[in-house]
Design a protein around this nucleic acid. Structure first.
Lengths: 135, 135
DNA sequence: CTGAATCCGACGAGATACTG
DNA sequence: CAGTATCTCGTCGGATTCAG
């Protein structure tokens, strides 16, 4: 019974390419100090630049702009410019961005299982080790 | 029927804390030039340091060691030292590390939907914009 | 209001040499 | 074999200033 399709081809596990896999691509997209926070804001509603700036204490305009542009370039969110005299720009999740949410949720769920990193047990599981090949 | 628990508490979407959420914690763990590749190698089998070094062309010992140590500190993998004369160290996924795999798979699946970033359409969806609040 | 431009410090990661 | 120790460089993010 030869299954020439894909026995255990589940994506990440099945990609035995020695180079970068698609998971890295996805990772790069959400990579950034404020990307996750931005996405989380846009889940709730369409936001203006000033809304995001206020909702994300500590971010500078430069970085916020940069990360928004990257997310836009990656198709995660859309940028709508209202050509009014006081400029107004709306940011909203795209369909692709919405498809990312379940993944982020999985990430969040796993993150909860961590709790406090670098404070775990440290069980070395040391074997008896009696072999000494080269004396 | 009042559910005082959590109406739409789904983790990432439900965490409206203005600070960092658990998804960022998870993200930091898998953050690193070779972390994903390392994990992918360890899915298949327990690996020795030299195995990983050979399987990951381009990585230096320093960085490989560093990222392995971080993953170990985060409880994703275990480090087993065989006190033999030619030193031998085995790296293996922990249960926590294995629980991460489905998440990485989701990440990979989403990454496939990207394809070629920065080459998408660029539809600005410009509104008619007739309002001029401050003339 | 939204954003660009510049300067800066911190960190990640590569190259190389050395060690138990 | 499996690291450690330095050095360097590129990138990321923060602060500030200027502009449409």
């Amino acid at each position: 019974m030869d299954r020439q399709g894909d026995p255990n081809e589940q994506g990440f596990l099945g990609s035995h390419d020695h180079t970068h896999c698609k998971a890295e691509v996805a990772l790069r997209v959400i990579q950034g100090r404020w990307k996750l926070l931005i996405l989380r804001e846009l889940i709730q509603a369409v936001r203006r630049f000033s809304d995001l700036h206020k909702a994300l204490p500590g971010v500078s305009q430069k970085v916020l702009t940069a990360q928004l542009r990257e997310l836009e370039a990656d198709g995660v969110l859309s940028r709508t410019i209202h050509p009014e005299v006081p400029p107004r720009v709306d940011y909203a999740l795209t369909d692709l961005g919405r498809e990312l949410l379940p993944v982020l949720d999985g990430l969040h769920a796993w993150g909860e299982r961590i709790g406090s990193p670098r404070t775990a047990d440290r069980t070395i599981t040391a074997p008896v080790a009696g072999s000494r090949p080269t004396a």
